[in-house]
């Protein structure tokens, strides 16, 4: 057998999957802008993604901010650059760690739940039932999740940024002996609009990716409980990888000279 064959087959499979996913995404997105809309469903997803994820995202960013302050202190103290800690904390959080950590946590929490719920609906014929009841599953299931994911993630990340900076402040002030006012001043003075804005753009993209992966893998799941399990795993793994790839690309877009 030609040794290149499996390689070609894998590549073709990849292209096929990419095409399917693109069509799915376009279909789902187009329904976000075409009536009828389902405000109740959108609202429920928003509460689920935005409100109930707050503890997870808050804790994650709090400890990220704390460890950043501690770790950069041990490094920076070697060449007396402790003064840069507030800047390091706030820039790392708003630009990178806030959106990426929140995105990964949301991928685990929300992406998995979406894939499991929609996947179960698929294998128990509930999606077929939707179609026979003249309701488009893309409108009813996919669009509300895409809308909620894209709009709630920036809010979550914004709150996460504040909590993370507070974590850095706690460690710096109460453990490392920083002056409270100087710390906050330094944080504020070096922060630019673009730092926060780029983080929020990332958050919106990550939210969309998580919701899209959850819906896509759930919608296409096959074959009972095992199929739903596979769909859930795939949703989380693919969302996490896409988040890291998209993170690099958006950073390149905003900050590359």
């Amino acid at each position: 057998m030609n040794p290149l064959r499996p390689l070609g087959a894998a590549f073709l499979n990849f292209l096929e999957a990419a095409g399917r996913l693109t069509l799915f995404a376009l279909n789902g997105l187009s329904h976000c802008f075409r009536p009828p809309f389902y405000p109740r469903l959108i609202g429920r997803q928003m509460i689920d993604i935005g409100y109930y994820s707050l503890p997870v995202v808050g804790l994650t960013t709090l400890f990220a901010g704390m460890v950043l302050a501690l770790q950069s202190y041990t490094g920076f103290a070697r060449f007396s650059a402790e003064g840069a800690i507030p800047n390091v904390v706030v820039l790392s959080l708003t630009r990178e760690l806030g959106p990426v950590l929140a995105g990964l946590m949301i991928a685990g929490r929300i992406g998995a739940a979406m894939a499991a719920e929609i996947g179960t609906m698929r294998v128990t014929e509930q999606i077929d039932a939707l179609e026979t009841l003249s309701t488009n599953p893309f409108k009813y299931l996919v669009a509300p999740r895409l809308i909620a994911g894209t709009t709630m993630m920036p809010l979550l990340v914004l709150i996460g940024d504040v909590i993370g900076v507070f974590g850095g402040y706690l460690v710096s002030v109460y453990k490392l002996g920083f002056n409270q006012i100087t710390y906050i001043q330094n944080t504020w003075n070096f922060l630019e609009f673009q730092d926060v804005f780029s983080g929020l753009v990332k958050a919106a993209v990550f939210g969309l990716l998580v919701a899209l992966m959850g819906c896509y893998h759930g919608y296409n799941s096959r074959g009972g409980a095992q199929g739903v399990g596979t769909a859930t795993t795939n949703a989380v793994v693919s969302a996490s990888i896409l988040i890291l790839i998209a993170n690099y690309m958006i950073t390149e877009l905003f900050f590359a000279q």
Partner: peptide, 13 residues
Amino acid sequence: IGMLFQNAALFDS
């Protein structure tokens, strides 16, 4: 058309 599915396919949410 109305349809009764094998396991009823009720929306559990």
